[in-house]
């Protein structure tokens, strides 16, 4: 079980490095890192659809935004609600939404499915814009992060460092669970369906239900990211549920690479950092992102993670690579 111990070491090292970050980074950069973790989870959830199941969605912000709003609305309307209950309510809302939307949309495949996700995202965006009394419409909603109650003690989350640690632990664990999920019976079923759906049916798998479960799960995870998005900014506006937010996650996942589990995480780093620095240099930065995206579609369909893996192969040879942390346990394809 060499592979297993390598993945375990990788995880422990990554957590350890992340844990010392508050001591190393300035506030500004710690803020950025928190945002990266949030978008990493969002992109990982998206890649469960795109990379694993081959489902192209242009409406993933439906879930991200729904949870972001559910969080703000529940905090504002139910005074004294604990942070765990906020998370519980919001995840429940997105899970239900994922189940309902999935039931309606998954009857279609390919381009048709992609188009419908876009359309339903637009409906939700329109509702969020128009339903001013609840969502605040164009003005958005401001909240204060509730404190973290652990039973024996209460930790104030007003401090960025504390919030960073909460984000790291909760979302980090969620990412690890997603990774584990890809190895489980369900995760493998979804993966094999993309490869040969017909055969899966003839082996007794109900492929429609599998897709629905995956879609719901992916939506719920995106929701968790959405919750922390609201916590992080202590504000939510309609942009959280907009088509742009759906495009963003597509860009992140694709640029990072959809064929590896860690691709979208890498994508989140690249995207958020580029966003922060490019937007200082040029206000045409979405154009730059778009160009990068199209060039990658044309020439590097495997994204950055593929480039890195190939370089690794080149410099360290195939044999070493077998033990390298980059390509072993995290390969999407079994």
């Amino acid at each position: 079980m060499k592979q297993k111990s390598i993945s375990l070491i990788t995880i422990v090292v990554l957590f350890a490095v992340a844990a010392v970050m508050p001591a190393v980074l300035k506030q500004y950069h710690l803020n950025m890192l928190t945002e990266i973790i949030i978008f990493a989870l969002y992109a990982v959830s998206y890649n469960l659809l795109l990379g694993y199941a081959g489902l192209l969605s242009f409406g993933h912000a439906s879930f991200f935004g729904l949870a972001a709003f559910a969080t703000a609305v529940s905090i504002i309307n139910i005074p004294g609600l604990s942070i765990w209950n906020v998370i519980l309510i919001s995840v429940a809302v997105t899970t239900l939404a994922g189940f309902a939307l999935g039931g309606l949309l998954l009857r279609h495949k390919g381009a048709y499915f992609a188009l419908l996700t876009l359309a339903f995202n637009s409906i939700l965006f329109a509702i969020a814009t128009k339903w001013h009394s609840v969502t605040g419409g164009d003005d958005g909603l401001s909240i204060t992060r509730p404190d973290l109650s652990l039973g024996f003690t209460t930790i104030p989350l007003a401090s960025l460092t504390n919030f960073y640690y909460l984000t790291l632990v909760v979302l980090g664990l969620a990412i690890i669970f997603c990774w584990y999920f890809t190895k489980t019976a369900m995760g493998q079923t979804v993966l094999l369906m993309r490869e040969n759906e017909d055969r899966m049916k003839f082996l007794g798998y109900n492929t429609n239900i599998s897709r629905l479960i995956l879609f719901t799960f992916s939506g719920a995870v995106a929701g968790l990211a959405g919750i922390f998005y609201t916590f992080h900014f202590q504000f939510v506006s309609i942009s959280a549920i907009s088509g742009d937010m759906s495009t963003t996650v597509l860009l992140i996942a694709f640029v990072g690479g959809t064929k590896k589990f860690w691709g979208p995480i890498l994508g989140a780093f690249v995207y958020i950092i580029l966003q922060n620095y490019l937007s200082d240099v040029t206000d045409r930065w979405p154009l730059v992102m778009g160009m990068i995206f199209v060039l990658m579609v044309l020439f590097v369909p495997g994204g950055l993670s593929d480039v890195i893996t190939n370089l690794w192969h080149k410099f360290f040879g195939k044999k070493d690579d077998k033990d390298g942390k980059l390509t072993t346990a995290e390969e999407v394809r079994p």
Binding site: L50, G54, L56, F58, G110, A111, A114, T247, L250, F254, R284, P286, L287, G290, M291, F293, V294, V297, L298, P301
Partner: peptide
């Protein structure tokens, strides 16, 4: 050029083009 990679890639390409044109 992307046709051989399949539908997802074609969709992504036209989507990216739309994005660039808008910008």
């Amino acid at each position: 050029r992307v046709h051989r990679y399949g539908h997802v890639q074609e969709l992504l390409l036209t989507f990216g083009l739309a994005y660039i044109i808008t910008e």
